[in-house]
Design a protein around this nucleic acid. Structure first.
Lengths: 242, 242
DNA sequence: TCAAAAGTGTTATGAGTACACCCATGG
DNA sequence: CCATGGGTGTACTCATAACACTTTTGA
């Protein structure tokens, strides 16, 4: 069987490769940070866990490919998605040389409705208990964790992991999970509220306490306008990052 | 002429692509920040300016390819080189679909000895006066500038652009060029020296003043140890970045 | 009534910033 | 001796960080 990609080469003498995208998909269930993984349907390593990925199609951009892969798995559109890095070690895929462009995604776990274990055998894993992964996927996950910590220290991206309504204590638990530490709740809420990015709601969430915690919503206009600002959510970022 | 990359496909039905690396090479001549560009030797757009690039070889990693391209052009090894982003628009190269992984490099312009205009028709351009570039290279340059500003606000990478011995005023001119602004020299030198990354030398540089400015060298051990620290060289980073 | 989480206020310390003068020296 | 760039010191402001008590209410 010959390469279906064969064609007249216009830059002669160069070798052609497969290109894939792989998605590191983060979620937050209110308590723990999780990663969405799938059981690989292709040989080799069939049945082992891997990141959700797919091959770049002939007329598709990288971003389009990553969004397609994500939509196929979760049914979600408009998800926060960011290119992480290209992984190009010649022997990273033992089957055939494949360059992979890794993307990381942040999704509101509650919007993810499709049955997990059907078509793609997908499952959420605690970020701290990731199973053995194929190929160089462990390195991709490590880099994504690092990048998430880095970026979240400077930009308000973690809201992407929360539902539309959330409480300050929920937000704090999320940040504490990301940085694997604890914050002073008084300083945390003051800092968060001082950004003026949150709009207080009338209702309370009584799921976690008798007193109840006020819901907040993101001010989406301010969020977009201030996205590039350095918010410094994190005390001592130099000690926590990397 | 058929695809020289044809071979038995082990992931059948997928299309294969060319993969290239392109380097955005920054230099600093003591006054201005510059970019190293080459005149393209291949059709199309032959004779037009472009970033230095090359195709990924069959048994080569991306980092190796970028280093090879850089070495071929400058003769330098061990240069600061960082993957920027993969560019994968299907029509970015009109000749044939080619994914390009962009790298940005910081080099000490004085160590760059090879004749510029020989084999590769390379030339330094003022960053503020970049000629028309081919393909999506303008977008790559813009992203590299942005990334350089971003990263330099948080990490001491700009030392990579300076010779082994440099003065504080030189360093300040460099930072001012990167951020296209001016800094208070008293605050700047205090901030820089407070990092404890610089070792004062006995000699002075008298090229720019009668009094002369003391040379400093980087403390390379501390530099490596503190590379990930947030140094906050830049006042009001949120106003300056992006 | 009490346990458990939510919410709030004060103070001390350090970093950032604005600002002005003296120093050294080649011409 | 003076013009030029190099180098330093101080005071103010604001953000950060440490710290403890009151509020609410379902069980």
């Amino acid at each position: 069987m010959y390469d279906s990609g064969s064609k007249i080469t216009r830059y002669p003498g160069q070798s052609h490769l497969l290109v894939a995208v792989d998605c590191i998909i983060f979620g937050f269930d209110g308590t723990n940070i999780k990663l969405l993984l799938v059981q690989r349907g292709l040989k080799p390593e069939k049945g082992k866990w891997s990141l959700m990925g797919g091959f770049l199609q002939a007329r598709e951009s990288l971003d389009d490919a990553a969004n397609r892969v994500l939509r196929k798995l979760t049914g979600l559109e408009g998800v926060y998605l960011e290119q992480l890095q290209a992984f190009g070690d010649p022997s990273r895929d033992p089957v055939e040389r494949t360059l992979s462009v890794a993307y990381f995604a942040l999704i509101d776990i509650h919007q993810y409705e499709k049955q997990l274990s059907n078509e793609y055998h997908a499952e959420w894993f605690l970020l701290k208990k990731i199973p053995e992964l194929i190929f160089d996927h462990p390195a991709m996950v490590e880099l994504a964790k690092k990048q998430l910590r880095y970026k979240a220290a400077l930009h308000p991206i973690l809201f992407e992991l929360l539902p539309a309504r959330f409480t300050i204590p929920q937000l704090q638990i999320l940040y504490e999970g990301i940085y694997d530490t604890t914050f002073d709740n008084r300083n945390f809420s003051r800092k968060v509220l001082s950004t003026d990015l949150l709009i207080k709601q009338k209702e309370k969430d009584k799921a976690n306490s008798k007193k109840g915690a006020f819901y907040y919503k993101l001010d989406k206009r301010k969020y977009k306008a201030n996205f590039q600002a350095f918010l410094n959510f994190i005390p001592n970022p130099d000690k926590l990052l990397m």
